[in-house]
Write a protein that binds this DNA or RNA. Structure first.
Length: 855
RNA sequence: GCCCGCGUGGCGGAAUUGGCAGACGCAACGGACUUAAAAUCCGUUGGCCCUAUGGGCCGUCCCGGUUCGAGUCCGGGCGCGGGCACCA
């Protein structure tokens, strides 16, 4: 009789036992090497979702594996707990953001604990706790002192109804996502982290991150967007100053037909003072957005200021100066010269303004006298024409020559621009880390003294009206200037929540310390050896954390250059979607199959299954992890997460797949509880090869090959392959026949399988380990070692091809030579038949692999 | 528009990086056990064909190339997915 595996009871028992024994507490032994594995910490939205399950399962496999490999492992968990959803909940339901957040944390912690993760919960923290954000405020002050923080005016999305700045993501089709009001551009004083100061460092260090996905590095490279070019001065007619522009194409300078300023360029502002029509044009530009879609709607528009600028090379020539809606203030110098022939934007603008189009680059095969530009600018390579001293030079040479000439004349030189902007961190929100500065009428901006930290959020706030509760709080912002003592006001903005997540990984090393990052506790663990999370953070979070690390190093906190030595980006968890004729979405458990048709369980309405997409509440294609754990246990959920798809790819959640995982768990338990042959006693040595028949010898080989293979797979994040290998082993063990020595081989195979499975299905493995007669913690057992002698076959099967087509397989001793293989191949009946007496020209032998007979 | 990535059975995916394509699993079909169901176990399963315990042909999106040999490398196409998007 086989006993049924009771996953829920077993899992609860081991979770409690591990917890009580404190097995996963991270400790610095000083003897073992350290390993820090971290998954991106969750936002406490309410309940965990399958994406969390996948993410944390992978991290836990790594943590448990590395522990078995003899590392001191740090595997912590916390909560990215500030953010807008809490304020929305407060607004919609009247519950305080803190209450809502901590309740969610409690729920989700309980759910994560059901998964059996080997986490050191003693280091848990939530970023919304003053014990965390007080240190963040201290870091802000450090950055301030180091010149890494500055306050400057910036153009922001302003929602006139809600009275707040909106992040770009909160502007939908030009309107505030909640108020529906048309968003305006406003210039406000904001706090910035000077990430651009590290632009080149952040770019170059990407080459030193071999364990990061190429895709992420590429995305960051593009995001930083380094462009090499030149700055050029165009003297302004009638003024004692020059217009400075940035270009990547100084070679096309002779093709210039206009210059243009951003509407927000200081010169544009100055000119608008005396020109009401220009002022009106600028106001209009600021009302509309500056995204491509906005401008596409409005068209490329410009205002001729009447001002002329002088061409740096052709001093007799002047160009009109426009203010144009497509020129961005925060890139380059906020001003451009336009060469319509070789830039599409400039061409569109020139056509609409009736400006000349002068070709100055001749495409390789074109006739220099007949180059014409239609509706498309020519941006390719070629030779300079119509360009005086540049004529005849290739584009790259012409660039260098032009820059040299500018330099000689004192009218410009080499320059580099980045797409990356400084990081604006001010948010007109309540539920975030207060910015520790005070605004004094006499002293200006004054940092809050360190001994006055933390600047705590007030608890008595209201959300019944839109806007920033901190700003309208009756008392909170009124304080004394720390410098002069006069009445002053606190900054009522809070920090972008990406600040919170930019240094949490370091704080985990000393979660309770009374300074932000004590070196003796932090240094041994950092950098994070393996970071795991979603690709959606490829740029923002991962770039901000990299910046923080460099800033923290500058401030003397850390001695590392990069926060995450290894990065793994996992795929999403997907599920089919279900809709009825009215377009209503249904949850998977709301539909069923009746008479071969998909229908809504409730009223039998026909439902159509749509394509599989990432699980989301809006499409109602989510499956609740807790329900799965209740039905099948955490091990089943974990096993399924790792089984089918490679971890970097999307995973399709299917009921049948989960059932398959459960079947394997039940079958494995049966195999352990009632093996097909009686196990030899634990600890007894396996008989030598001579004492075993070929089947058993082969089985031992399979066992040791599996150990080696799974080890390699786990090192390389090939979890699906690892699971497949272990299944192959246990399939082979199930088929074992009783004969002398079988009990020994069975025990060795079974114990190996259980140990290899320990990181993946830890509860089942622990239970099986005890059932096999052990009294130790499997979670503390060392990783199994493969015996080298058993990894090599003594007989190999070699394929034989005739003219590249497989015609036979032959068995040869593993150490066979070329001649032996060739002879055996030529002697094979199938090969002779395929040759049909034709003359053999040559025979290619790759020992152990293949023989190819070529006629 | 620019920049990446990916196309393998009915499905998810393997293939030691140029050497036996389809491991492992899901689904499906057939069978055993059972009053029945569930559970479990055994078997079959890329396609086509033949003189059928064997054997042949085709087959990794399409066309071409390199090679004794290509899912893997190169060139061109088609399709799907992702990132960025007036960045001068």
């Amino acid at each position: 009789m086989s006993e049924r595996y009771d996953a829920q009871a077993v899992e609860a028992r081991w979770q409690a036992a591990w917890e009580e024994a404190g097995l996963f507490r991270a400790e610095l032994s000083g003897e073992r090497p350290t390993y820090y594995v971290l998954e991106m910490f969750p936002y406490p939205s309410g309940r965990i979702h399958m994406g969390h399950v996948r993410n944390y399962t992978m991290g836990d496999v790594v943590a448990r594996y590395k522990r078995a490999r003899g590392y001191d492992v740090l595997h912590p968990m916390g909560w990215d707990a500030f953010g807008l959803p809490a304020e929305n909940a407060a607004f919609e339901r009247g519950v305080h953001p803190a209450e809502w957040t901590y309740a969610n944390v409690a729920t989700m912690r309980g759910q994560l604990q059901l998964m059996g993760l080997s986490i050191d919960w003693e280091r848990e923290f939530a970023t919304c706790h003053p014990g965390y954000y007080e240190h963040q405020q201290a870091l802000f002050l450090d950055f301030f002192e180091a010149g890494l923080v500055e306050r400057k005016e910036a153009w922001v999305n302003w929602d006139p109804v809600d009275g707040t700045v909106l992040a770009n993501e909160q502007v939908v089709d030009g309107r505030g996502w909640r108020s529906g009001a048309v968003v305006e551009k406003r210039r406000l004083a904001q706090w910035f982290f000077r990430i651009t100061r590290f632009a080149d460092e952040l770019l170059e260090a990407l080459d030193e991150l071999p364990r990061w996905p190429d895709k992420v590095r590429l995305m960051q490279r593009n995001w930083i967007g380094r462009s090499e070019g030149a700055r050029i001065l165009f003297p302004i007619e009638g003024r004692d100053e020059a217009l400075e522009v940035f270009t990547t194409r100084p070679d096309t300078l002779f093709g210039a037909s206009f210059c243009a300023l951003s509407p927000n360029h200081p010169l544009a502002t100055a000119l608008a003072g005396a020109d009401p029509a220009l002022a009106a044009f600028i106001a209009e530009c600021n009302l509309a957005g500056i995204g491509e879609r906005d401008i596409e709607a409005a068209g490329k528009r410009g205002y001729d200021t009447g001002v002329k600028v002088r061409h740096p090379f052709e001093t007799e020539r002047t160009l009109p100066l426009y203010v144009a809606n497509f020129v961005l203030m925060d890139y380059g110098t906020g001003a451009i010269f336009g060469c319509p022939a070789h830039d599409q934007r400039d061409l569109d603008f020139a056509r609409s303004q009736g400006l000349p189009v002068i070709p100055v680059v001749c495409p390789p095969d074109a006739d220099a006298d007949a180059v014409t530009i239609g509706d498309e600018a020519y941006t390719g390579d070629g030779t300079a024409i119509n360009s005086d001293f540049l004529n005849g030079l290739a584009v790259e040479d012409a660039k260098a020559r032009a820059v040299a000439a500018l330099d000689e004349r004192g009218l410009g030189g080499v320059s580099v621009s980045h797409r990356l902007r400084d990081w604006g961190i001010s948010r007109q929100r309540y539920w975030g880390c207060p910015i520790p500065v005070v605004h004094c009428e006499d002293c200006g901006v004054v940092p809050v003294p360190r001994e006055a930290l933390p600047v705590r959020l007030p608890e008595d706030v209201t959300f019944d009206v839109p806007g920033n509760p901190l700003d309208r709080h009756p008392a909170w912002k009124y304080t004394a200037c720390p410098r002069c003592g006069a009445a002053a006001a606190r900054d009522t903005d809070t920090m972008d929540t990406f600040v919170d997540s930019s240094w949490y990984f370091a704080r985990f090393c000393a979660a309770r310390a009374d300074v932000p990052l004590p070196e003796d506790e932090v240094a041994p663990w950092l950098p994070v050896d393996q970071y795991i999370g979603g690709i959606e953070h490829a740029v923002l979070h991962l770039l901000y954390s990299r910046f923080f690390t460099k800033a923290l190093k500058l401030c003397g906190y850390l001695d590392i250059d990069e926060p995450f030595a290894g990065l793994f980006t996992q795929g999403m968890v997907c599920h089919e979607t279900y809709r009825d004729a009215d377009g209503r979405w249904y949850y998977p458990d709301e539909v069923e199959t009746r008479a071969g048709e998909l229908v809504a369980r409730e009223d039998g309405r026909p439902v159509v299954a749509g394509r599989s997409e990432a699980m989301s509440k809006s499409k109602r294609n989510t499956v609740d992890p807790e329900a799965i754990i209740e039905a099948y246990g955490a091990d089943t959920a974990r096993l399924f997460m790792l089984s089918d798809s490679p971890p970097e790819r999307d995973l399709e959640w299917t009921d049948t797949g989960v059932k398959g995982a459960w079947r394997y768990i039940a079958a494995l338990w049966r195999l352990v509880a009632s093996p097909p042959v009686a196990l030899s006693p634990g600890g007894a040595a396996v008989p030598g090869p001579g004492a075993l028949d070929p089947q058993l010898r082969e089985l031992r080989r399979t066992t040791h090959k599996t150990i080696a293979g799974v080890t390699e797979d786990l090192e390389r994040f090939r979890f699906n392959r690892a699971v497949a290998r272990i299944r192959e082993l246990t399939n082979a063990l199930s088929a074992i026949e009783d004969r002398p020595g079988a009990g020994h081989v069975m025990r060795e195979g079974l114990e190996s399988a259980v140990r290899l499975l320990a990181p993946i299905v830890p509860h089942l493995a622990e239970e099986a380990w005890r059932r096999l007669g052990h009294e130790s913690w499997l979670a503390r057992e060392p990783w199994p070692e493969a015996e080298a002698a058993l990894l090599a076959d003594d007989v190999v099967v070699v394929a034989v091809q005739v003219d590249g087509r497989k015609r036979a397989t032959i068995s040869l001793p593993a150490d066979h030579g070329r001649a032996e293989a060739e002879d055996a191949a030529m002697a094979d009946g199938g090969v002779r038949r395929a040759l049909a007496g034709r003359a053999v020209r040559k025979v290619i032998v790759v020992p152990g692999r293949i023989v190819n007979v070529v006629t």
